[in-house]
Design a binder for these strands. Structure first.
Length: 782
DNA sequence: GGAGGCCTCGGAAGG
DNA sequence: CGAGGCCTCC
């Protein structure tokens, strides 16, 4: 057996070997975080742990897949039995089993964000509310935020803390919308993404036998990117881990960039409060980047107040300094970047895929694309519309959904008249009203229109009957045919393909190709032994369409393979958010201007500004060898020109890491001339700068959303543990009286192990007996 | 039901 | 400026 622990440095190995008890690993950028997680799982398996008792949670399918592959390389096929996946996929899997306790069938449908918004839009219209005030995205955001904080619709409506701001913003019906939204989801036998976490919490809260069962099953729990967890996720982990407390969370507070979508950095800062006898490991050696990049990144992040102290360092080469490019406008910036990239590529003979261009907002990609095209440099943009969110795919998938779950109202409404079959808005409207009056699902009304008292012309009645009969004929096949055969049958008989083929434009042809691509994916699934998200299908379990469908809603564009029509060696273009977790030899961070990066929306609060700074930290630490920063003196924003100073983040980097003395490259004179140019007169003639009022309104909305308090919320973080004079581990002997910074005075009753593994059993006056690893316990001999 | 004109609005994005 | 939603008109 290969001693794979030898592949690890000292800190990594300790984190891997600390299998029992609560463990927090603070992993600096590029410090081998994934390595620790994967080796930990491998080590657990080598130590005899049952693969089925290990739960490893990630935020993206990609991270889960990569981890699984790496564990497979270390331990072989046993890796397939580890519960490994995203929060959503793992708990969806549990809810397929336990959902009936909450009244959901095990084949419940999962609504994605688009489905949820469509439902809200329809509710707003049914209630005759102002669609501008109750924009689906706003309403959904508020509901989502409540659910992420485990606030139910009933609690929401009772609590003025939520309803107050709604009234204030002229949206008094928001609570009612939340209630109705949940009712409609339930009637559709559907959960949205937030429900997967919310309902998992309900299960663990209300069903002690379920709690017990999964506490028993998941003996070892690991969580990646812990700094990104929200309250609902935090509480699930805490409950599941409560019995064994074999919980290991890995993260980096310096890379927390998702507070805006509910991530709560307090979860990482307060781990020590939840698990007072936790062990903390810091991975501080960076293996990715040059000294210049590591040190420059350190000098940036040092400006933040909220952080866990650590010193990231590297033994890599010093490397070349960070270049700064200045363009007169965004197009010139693009050209300078493209030229610089081209020169690097030629000088060092590098492939295109060694380069990435990172930006703050998607809109910045255009200038970069144009410049790259001019120089014939191939590129790939990440972060477009995901395959499964395209209209033609959602339409066909809606057929699949409706066949599997006849009560899926969103799917029903989406396809009842697509392709056109004479069941128009008026008819649908009547049926919906009737469904409301009888409090019955829309599907039941349409299945029995006569007994429901629907009065329609006979040919419309016929069309409805044809439609429901067709769907039912598919439904009975779900368990008889394999996924591919049924999917093909639906595609052919529904008329979708015929409809799409009528459109001979390039877009139309591409839509037909996409349908083919979806069918290929179904065939792959039918013939393979894993689901689309990579979970192994159970032995002997049929590859039916419902199993396929359960999975694909959890996929995103990040899970898609490269365009097969245009494979090859390309420069990567993406937002910094999308670049998290990736690395490139050469990284360009563009658009480094005040009001863009940091975003003007972040400038009013320290915490938001600090998140922008962490974002810049993430961007810089993606680079292995060379980082280049660029900015434009002027760029068009919404069609009007705007002038901004170079970003503060450039000047926050210690000058010695920049390859041009900053005084020359971004000289004060330049700033002055910028100011001179940006005179009120000029702004006036050019039609002003950015709009002000809508921005202000937006900001306030966001802040009230964030005000939703967390039930059982954490107190604010405390400072790091003090480092007083501590005893050498060798001195500790049984019988000694020692003092621990947190547990107080106690007597050493036993000492085991040697070296780094040496631990003492101490009987404390206040908290009783504790086992402490002496390397970390910081005991003072009294 | 679809084409075309008009209006509005603009952050980052996992599942 | 440009994308997307909505309305109108055929």
């Amino acid at each position: 057996m290969k001693n794979f622990l030898a592949d690890l440095n000292n800190d990594q190995r300790q984190a891997v070997e600390a299998l029992q008890g609560p463990v927090m690993v603070i992993a600096g950028a590029g410090s081998g975080k994934t390595r620790v997680l994967t080796y930990r799982v491998a080590h657990l398996l080598h130590q005899g742990a049952d693969a089925f008792s290990i739960l490893a949670l990630t935020f993206t399918n990609k991270a889960a897949r990569e981890m699984r592959e790496r564990i497979f390389k270390l331990v072989g096929k046993e890796a397939g039995n580890v519960w490994m996946g995203t929060f959503h996929s793992v708990f969806a899997r549990v809810l397929r089993v336990e959902g009936p306790r909450l009244g959901y069938p095990s084949n419940f449908t999962i609504y994605d964000t688009d489905d949820s918004r469509r439902l809200i839009k329809s509710l707003v219209s049914e209630l005759h509310l102002d669609p501008k005030l109750y924009a689906p995205a706003v309403v959904h955001g508020r509901i989502s935020s409540a659910k992420s904080n485990l606030v139910s619709a009933a609690e929401y409506n009772e609590n003025p803390e939520f309803t107050g701001p709604d009234k204030q913003f002229n949206r008094p019906e928001l609570g009612r919308l939340y209630t109705m939204y949940q009712m409609r989801l339930f009637k559709s036998q559907a959960m949205d993404f937030d429900d997967l976490l919310f309902n998992m919490n309900v299960l663990l809260r209300d069903f002690p036998e379920v709690l017990h069962k999964y506490q028993q099953r998941f003996q070892y729990i690991m969580v990646d990117e812990y700094q990104d967890t929200n309250f609902a996720q935090y509480l699930i982990i805490k409950k599941l881990a409560a019995k064994n407390e074999n919980i290991c969370v890995v993260g980096d507070d310096a890379q927390s960039i998702y507070a805006f979508r509910g991530a709560n950095i307090q979860n990482i800062l307060n781990f020590k409060k939840d698990y007072p006898d936790y062990r903390l490991f810091k991975l501080e050696q960076n293996y990715r980047s040059t000294q210049v990049i590591v040190e420059a990144a350190n000098s940036i992040i040092a400006q933040n107040k909220d952080q866990i102290q650590k010193k990231v360092w590297t033994s890599n080469e010093e490397g070349s300094k960070i270049s700064v490019l200045k363009g007169a406008n965004e197009n010139e910036e693009g050209l300078l970047v493209a030229r610089h990239l081209f020169e690097q590529k030629m000088q060092y003979q590098l492939p295109n895929n060694y380069f990435a261009i990172l930006y703050r907002t998607n809109a910045q990609s255009r200038a970069m694309e144009e410049a790259l095209r001019k120089l014939n440099i191939p590129y790939r943009i990440f972060g477009g519309l995901s395959f499964y969110r395209r209209k033609e795919i959602k339409d066909l998938v809606a057929y699949f959904r409706l066949c599997i779950n006849n009560y899926d109202e969103d799917a029903l409404r989406r396809i009842i008249n697509y392709p056109t079959r004479g069941i128009g808005d008026t008819t649908l409207e009547k049926a919906i009203v009737r469904a409301g009056e009888l409090n019955q699902p829309l599907w039941d009304i349409l299945s029995n229109p006569v007994s429901a008292g629907l009065e329609l012309r006979s040919n419309v009645m016929n069309q409805i009957s044809n439609f429901t009969t067709m769907i039912k004929s598919f439904t009975v096949q779900v368990n008889r045919l394999n996924a591919y055969d049924l999917a093909r049958q639906i595609t052919m008989s529904s008329g979708i393909l015929r409809d799409l083929k009528e459109d001979q434009t390039p877009e139309g042809v591409s839509r037909v190709e996409n349908i083919d691509e979806l069918l290929n994916a179904v065939r792959d699934f039918t013939e393979s032994d894993t689901t689309p998200t990579g979970v192994e299908t159970e032995e002997g379990k049929a590859r039916t369409l419902d199993v396929f469908l359960q999975d694909i809603v959890l996929l995103t564009d990040a899970d898609e393979k490269e365009d097969e029509n245009q494979p090859g060696d390309k420069v990567s273009l993406m937002t910094i958010h999308a670049a998290k977790g990736l690395e490139f030899q050469n990284v360009y961070i563009v658009g480094l201007e005040e009001n863009l990066f940091p975003s003007f929306l972040s400038l009013n609060s320290r915490s938001e500004l600090e998140e922008e700074r962490r974002l810049f930290y993430v961007a810089l630490t993606r680079a292995e060898k060379k980082a280049v920063l660029s900015f434009a003196e002027m760029r068009y924003k919404y069609g009007t020109p705007s002038w901004n100073e170079p970003s503060r983040f450039i000047s926050e980097i210690d000058e010695k890491y920049l390859d041009v003395p900053r005084k020359k490259q971004i000289p004060q004179t330049s700033l002055k001339s910028l100011h001179g140019f940006d005179s009120p007169e000029i702004r006036k003639t050019l039609g002003g700068n950015t709009p002000e009022l809508p921005v202000g309104l937006q900001r306030r909305e966001k802040q009230t959303l964030k005000k939703i308090p967390l039930p059982g919320a954490h107190p604010p973080p405390s400072s790091q543990s003090a480092t007083g004079p501590t005893a050498n581990p060798d001195e500790i002997q049984p019988g000694m009286v020692v003092e621990h910074e947190r547990f107080g005075i106690g007597e050493v009753t036993q000492v085991d192990g040697t070296g780094a593994n040496k631990k003492a059993t101490v009987k404390f006056e206040s908290v009783g007996s504790k086992q402490l690893l002496l390397k970390f316990a910081k005991l003072r001999i009294v």
